[in-house]
Amino acid sequence: MPVRATDARRAAVLGSPIAHSLSPVLHRTAYAELGLVDRTYDRFDVDEAALPAFFAELGPEWAGLSLTMPLKRAVIPLLDEISDTAASVEAVNTVVFTDDGRRLGDNTDIPGMVAALRERGVAQVDSAAVLGAGATASSALAALARVCTGEVVAYVRSAARAAEMRRWGERLEVDVRTADWADAAEALHFPLVVATTPAGTTDALAAAVPERPTTLFDVLYDPWPTTLAARWSMYGGAVVSGLDLLVHQAVLQVEQMTGRAPAPVEAMRKAGEHALAAR
C-alpha cells in the first residue's frame, strides 16, 4: 500500500563527505523532544553527480532534506521553487517536500547566523569584519545585511577573492570594503568579527586579540575552541561558535520539515555538545 504524506516521514542530510555531520544527532533529538516517534533522520553520502538519481528515487514518505557541501548549489535545478533568502546567495541547504509533491528550497544558514548572534545579544552593529572569502563568507555577508548598519571589511588573500566579496556586497546591498589578509589583526578591533576560514587559519591572530574584545563569531565547531576563540573568551569577549550556527539553522529546518514550533534549541545544543565531546 502506498505511503501517504500523513504517515511516518523521513528526512536526511546529504553531502560528501558526510560521516562527520552532526545533523542526525540534532534532528533526532528534536524529534524525540517533540514526541515525533514515527520520524526518522539519516545521512547519505551523495556527491553532485549522484544527486539527480537520488532525488528520482524519493517517495511520498519524504518530508525534507538537509544539504551540505558540495550540494548547496547543485540542488537548485532539481527544485520547483527556492526562497528569496536562498536565491540571494545561490545556495540551498534545506529542501521541504509538500503534500502535493513540490520541492521547495530554502537557506536556513543565514537566519541561523542572525539567530545565533541575537542569542548573544548582538542585534545590530555599526560595522563588522569578515575573515576569509569562501562559500561561508557570502552567507555571512547576507546575515550581516540584517545586522550591520555600516561598513563590512573583508580580509582576503587575493585580488580575485577581493573582487568576489565586493560583488557579493553589491548583490546583497552590503557596503563591503576589502583589505589584505596581512592586515587581518586590524579586524579584531571591530564591534563584530566573523571568522569563516578553515581550521588553523586564524591561529596566528590570537596573539593580537585586544584587551577588551567585543564579539567573535567563529563558524568552526570541530575542533573547538579554536585558538582565536579561546584567547577571545579568556579576555572576556563574547564568542558565538559554529555549533551555535549549526543548532539554529537545524532548528529552522526541523520547524519547516515537521510543521512543529518551536523546536527545542537547548536540547539540540546539549546533544551536539555531547556528540562533539565523544569524538
Rank of each mutant, 00 (worst) to 15 (best):
S233F: 03
A230R: 15
P223G: 01
T227F: 01
F217A: 04
P223V: 00
L245D: 04
L245Q: 13
V240Y: 07
D244T: 13
W232P: 07
P225C: 01
L245I: 12
T215N: 03
Y221F: 03
A230C: 05
V239W: 06
L246F: 12
V247M: 05
V240F: 09
F217L: 12
T215V: 11
T226V: 03
T215W: 00
W224F: 06
G242C: 14
L245H: 05
G237S: 14
G237N: 14
P225S: 02
W232F: 08
L228P: 04
L220I: 13
Y235G: 14
D222S: 13
A229W: 02
A238P: 07
T215H: 03
V219W: 00
D218F: 09
T214A: 13
V240Q: 10
S233G: 06
A229N: 07
H248M: 11
V247L: 09
L216V: 04
L220V: 08
R231I: 08
V247G: 11
A238Y: 05
Y235L: 15
D222Y: 05
A229T: 08
P213W: 13
A229S: 07
P213M: 15
A229R: 06
W232C: 07
L243S: 10
G237C: 14
W232G: 05
W224D: 03
L228W: 09
H248D: 13
V239T: 10
